[in-house]
Amino acid sequence: MDRLQAMQVFTKIVEMNSFSRAADSLNLPHASTTTIIKNLEAHLRVRLMQRTTRRLNLTPEGAEYYERCTRILAEIDETEDALSNTGKGPRGKLRIDMPGSVGRLVVMPRLPEFRERYPDIELMVGFGDKPVDLVQEGVDCAIRVGELEDSSLVARRLGVLQTLTAASPAYIEQYGEPTSLDNLRQHHAVQYFSNGTGRMNEMSFVIDKETTSVKMRGTLAVNDGDAYVMCGVQGAGIIQSPRFMLLPHLRSGALVEVLPQWKPAPMPIAAVYPHNRHLAPKVRVFVEWIAMLFESCPLMSSVVDQEGRCVIADAQYGLAPYTNAHAVDATVEAFA
């Protein structure tokens, strides 16, 4: 049995959900695809798919085998492309994953530039705050926020996300503005809980280079970054979030930064990918592009004014406090 051909036939059948269409695509007799899959299942000693009158359903073993086959076949294609000296540049399907807020506000506005530069790369972009298993789910590259736990991945540091503490004017009018960390404990917070562990994230601040956590009361918890910010805008409680997510609401006055003299610890952000993907041209050019994108992003600036409140630094427009709507508009427009 030609195992490479069997992998190609199997993945094509899954992608086209049809034995006959897969056979036509691969220029094989229709009967050959059925024979190849039967021989493959006999060789592996597992059932890969269940057939019904309308569609094909993968077994758990079939789903795992499909993910592995797609990675193996992609690596073969990329190796051949790299050695063929065709001069056509990176190509193939590139699956990436990132937090929704990072994708929506930072990456997607500039993604047309990447597509124009590398037209032969087919992008699959996934969004979500829950980290995915890159190897098991066939993801080529992911953007991760926070400290990395998986040491089996290669990481390229992209920068840090400055974090602010904020509340809505309605909340401040009702409960007052916190003036100290001790006073903060008397206030209400919107809680953010981890998708993976269900654990509530406490608010934290850096004081004399030490991180101090503050446990606050709260009757509302969410596990999505955008929903978390909107809860703060609606006056449900005090929030801590990356500045680039808060900026439009700070600019409009829907949120106000509180306790600007005590900043939360910045969160590292990195591009990560499996070790077996580090030589793939499509992965390499995407990581280089995303690194330059974050380096040039004014929303990642850490400049503060005399009161300790964050401002956006941009070489063309100078320093613009986020309370200055015109300057912020110009800076955001330059980035977008």
Rank of each mutant, 00 (worst) to 15 (best):
D182I: 05
A189V: 09
F10M: 05
A155P: 02
D129N: 12
V258H: 00
K215I: 11
T197Q: 00
A236Q: 06
Q316F: 01
E173G: 01
R199C: 08
L319V: 14
V256W: 02
P274T: 04
G225V: 02
G89S: 03
K12N: 11
L134T: 01
T197G: 01
I13K: 04
N223T: 05
A170F: 02
P169I: 07
A330M: 13
T323L: 11
I36R: 09
E333R: 13
Q136S: 12
V154S: 12
A42W: 13
R251G: 10
P119S: 00
L247G: 05
Q174V: 00
L220V: 12
S84E: 12
D133E: 15
A327L: 15
A315S: 06
V46D: 09
R251M: 15
A31H: 13
R115N: 11
A42L: 11
G159E: 02
P242Q: 00
F114G: 03
A6N: 03
N223W: 01
Q186I: 07
E15Q: 12
Q5E: 09
T79S: 12
T33C: 11
L164A: 11
V154H: 10
P242Y: 03
R277Y: 03
M49K: 07
T52P: 04
L299K: 06
V328K: 04
M124K: 13
F193K: 13
Y175V: 00
V190I: 05
Q240G: 07
G196K: 14
E173I: 04
L48Q: 14
T86E: 11
V14A: 01
L246N: 05
R54H: 14
F294T: 07
H278F: 13
P321C: 05
P29L: 06
I269Q: 06
I238C: 02
F286E: 02
E149I: 14
A74E: 12
R54M: 07
K209H: 14
M200F: 07
H278R: 10
L26E: 06
Q316H: 13
E67G: 09
V272Y: 14
R47N: 13
H275T: 11
M16L: 15
R243L: 12
G225I: 02
L123K: 00
R243V: 11
G237K: 07
N276C: 10
T35N: 09
E149G: 10
A22T: 09
R117Q: 15
E333S: 15
P119F: 00
K282L: 00
R284N: 11
M203W: 00
S301H: 06
L44E: 06
I238L: 04
P112E: 04
R277S: 01
L26T: 01
Y66T: 01
S151Y: 03
G159P: 03
N17Y: 04
E15D: 10
T53R: 14
T211P: 05
W289E: 04
G253Y: 01
